[in-house]
Design a protein around this nucleic acid. Structure first.
Lengths: 196, 196
DNA sequence: CTCTATAGAATACGACCGTATCCTTACGAG
DNA sequence: CTCGTAAGGATACGGTCGTATTCTATAGAG
């Protein structure tokens, strides 16, 4: 067998370049050629790694999912119950350049998913994982009596996710209101999840 | 002076066609030609009404803003305080085909606004109006003692908007979870805004 | 070393894009 | 009625898109 190369590693490099491009210019700035250039490769090269643009987008969307879950796992360290939840949500909010870049990417893919069933399935899978983790976290709180008896942990998780996504969207196109919005988030979380 | 025509009316017709196209295929499905076809006109005709595609998008974005405010004004009739707030939020959620179409359009423009300052300004203006109305509504509640004394009406409005936007986004790419998400919204609203 | 299959670049092709430029038609002022 | 002007259709142009195809060079098996 002749010359070979780690295809999965190359796909990851190209996927990273694609996500960088999306964070800067949205999905509209993504073409096979611009992605290849951003990855330091020729357009012909990326054609060897992906069967087409759709394959590229699907791969990148899964990369985004991985990153979200990884970012939430990284918060886990304990602290005040309310503070941990706050950090859990802030981890995904566009409050600094790197988080803003990632949030812009998530929003771009979520919007494309509205009319793209394959991407929608990936979005739903990511949501399912995040929701499961959050629900489990709430259930632990509940078992320790730090949550009122009647609380529905699943609904609570959905509400926190929606709150995070909603604030994310607004912060993305209104960066100046970021501080005020974080304050609003804090009061909302305090009301939604009254830490025992 | 020769033959004339109501330009603003024509702009509105073309804008409507554009929004219909966006609701079906996203902003990617929008080109001067496709919009013209959807409006039953030739591509050359719409060029007489708009200075370019950007002008067209800007006009359509303002149309969306008008519709949102109009839709919220239409809810106003009184009822149980909690029920009114619920209806106010549900009015913008994609719970049936027409509302889904409008929500998809809003999300598409919000996402483009992330990298398009002109559209972002329009989004912020719409948000400002909605937030002001909601804040005023909360302040009335507060003055009637139906809200706890320390409540920050502005922050509450921001939280409700974020909640609505977040649930909207998720419902758009996960329509099957719609019922469950509405249930989560109800519990979230009950906790966020404890109706006296 | 030789040969072959692959990496990767370059190029080609047809489609669609936004916009500019005609051209024909028909209304309305004089 | 006549004529200038706006309406609106048709077409042209340069550019970019996704993808298919072609070519060269190189790494590894024998």
């Amino acid at each position: 067998m002749p010359r070979t190369v780690d295809k999965e590693a190359q796909r990851r490099i190209v996927g990273d370049a694609l996500l960088g491009l999306v964070s800067e210019h949205g999905l509209d700035g993504v073409s096979v050629r611009t992605v290849a250039a951003a990855a330091g490769k020729s357009a012909g090269a990326v054609q060897k790694y992906f069967s087409g643009k759709d394959d590229m987008l699907r791969f990148a969307a899964e990369l985004v999912g991985e990153r979200v879950e990884h970012r939430m796992d990284a918060v886990d360290p304990e602290g005040g119950t309310g503070a941990v939840l706050r950090e859990l949500v802030l981890a995904t909010l566009p409050v600094d350049p790197p988080r803003r870049a990632e949030a812009a990417v998530r929003q771009a893919f979520a919007t494309r998913a509205v009319h793209h069933e394959e991407l929608a399935a990936i979005q739903r899978e990511t949501d399912r994982a995040v929701r499961a983790a959050l629900t489990e976290w709430f259930e632990e709180l509940w078992e320790h009596g730090r949550l009122e008896p009647g609380a529905d942990c699943g609904h609570l998780a959905d509400a926190v996710i929606a709150l995070a996504d909603g604030f994310t969207m607004r912060m993305l196109y209104a960066p100046d209101e970021c501080d005020s919005l974080v304050a609003a988030l804090d009061t909302a979380l305090a009301r939604l999840v009254p830490v025992g």
